[in-house]
Write a protein that binds this DNA or RNA. Structure first.
Lengths: 245, 245
DNA sequence: CGACTCGTTGACTCTCTTCAAGGATAGTGG
DNA sequence: CCACTATCCTTGAAGAGAGTCAACGAGTCG
């Protein structure tokens, strides 16, 4: 591994044999899943792979939206900033998620790696012309956008009306559900983001998040075996706490 | 006018001469604007017009999503409820806005008329099959969804991180911008929604909204000539208050 | 005209934030 | 291998912004 090289980028077309897409582990859960092998090959030709380390930036709010991405592995956080530094994380993206549905001229938010991340990068213009050829893909993106809107509305309800305990419970249940959808049903829930990330996602402070997690721990609802992992001990109870805690 | 008749519905195809779509005032600012006259005629055949009075419900969260709508005139509020009655209004829709982009199996939120409202109703299934014929329309819907996502993210920033004064200022500026986009540049800004609606949109209480508006009034930033109208006297100041007030 | 809803204002309360400090953990370099 | 440091997480005490409870004025409708 070479030492310094900010966002490490490699051109798959130039560097690998066969079609990496056909072997892609997340193809079926991502937007690529709707394409036939020959269509996939067309898509592959415009893709580059990007590797990010924790803390590196994928896109910056306000920049010209030249590329969109598919998350192959790892966790990305999306966020917006106020001039004085207050931050709101608007979402986390995991393997299979599509980053950049908001196909406007500039990015509406910044995106930063939470841990080691691998992305597929598509030049936006090229992807757009592929959309005209593959209506299935466009339909899938519309579905993806619809989903994101539903999630966004749930988050508005959380941010506008829920208590701290309800927010943290909702966050944990949401994380667990998404992990399950990706087939990760381990004993422990992976929580790669920091308390500060969680706080900025839930509209709280790190202190309040920490205190609330302690509360849930003391109530026996969850356990915290290691940093970065949480065990849900009383799923039902946690579910109840989401909207009446 | 006949007395009781919950959501009054009339079938345009059966009841009117000519194509009402071609004379539609909001066509150009709505999704219909991308269609040619002949395509518009195809669309017209699946449309019914719906009239709602203030307080009447267009769709209810959880119901099967049979129809989608285009707002012709008036104001609609979208909201989600918690079991104990806490409400979060996730958005307001005005003339030209498309209601129901979240094309899932059930509605993710409820929608209620704020004032007198006229809607175009499309059966979802029929619209979906038209989408396959008119890729322009699908593309336009995707753009609309992307826009809504951007707005939703701004709202998350507001709900998670802004103070009461910043929220109210943002709300007023946002209302004014949307009115301007619809060509309504009058001296006064129309504010058809109640304080309670504004509060539930901004994640505040009616009392806090009221006190904040009073503050802005006392600061000379706005004036409140009548109920339902607000005059923005210092546009720059209000803009500044959106993110550092 | 009385009942109702809506908006405003006041006094008090409370949840979450702010400020502060200590403890756990991981990475670094001698 | 172990001190050294930086960062993250946790906990405590005090404070503030918005919420709650309550009352009142204004406009509206039957």
């Amino acid at each position: 591994m070479r030492p310094l090289q900010p966002p490490k980028t490699r051109d798959i077309a130039a560097g690998q044999l066969g079609s990496p897409c056909s072997a892609c582990e997340i193809r079926e859960i991502s937007v690529c899943g709707v394409l036939s092998p020959s269509e996939l090959e067309r898509l592959r030709q415009i893709i580059a792979t990007v590797h990010l380390d924790a803390g590196q930036t994928a896109i910056s709010e306000g920049d010209e939206a030249a590329d969109v991405f598919n998350v192959v592995s790892g966790t990305i956080k999306l966020y917006k900033l106020l001039p004085d530094g207050r931050r709101q994380i608007t979402g986390f993206m995991f393997a299979g998620d599509f980053l950049g549905i908001a196909l406007n001229e500039t990015y509406a938010y910044s995106a930063e790696a939470v841990d080691k991340v691998q992305l597929c990068r598509f030049p936006r213009r090229k992807l757009e012309s592929l959309l005209e050829e593959f209506p299935k893909l466009e339909r899938r993106l519309l579905g993806e956008a619809a989903n994101e809107l539903v999630v966004a509305q749930d988050q508005m309800l959380l941010l506008g009306r829920k208590t701290a305990r309800e927010r943290v419970s909702s966050f944990l249940v949401g994380l667990a559900d998404r992990a399950a959808r990706r087939g990760r049903l381990g004993e422990n829930l992976e929580v790669p983001m920091s308390r500060s990330d969680i706080a900025d996602f839930l509209g709280l402070t790190t202190e309040t998040v920490s205190r609330t997690i302690t509360q849930l721990k003391e109530g026996g609802v969850i356990a915290v075996p290691n940093r970065g992992q949480i065990q849900i001990r009383q799923r039902e109870k946690l579910h109840d706490l989401m909207e009446s805690g």
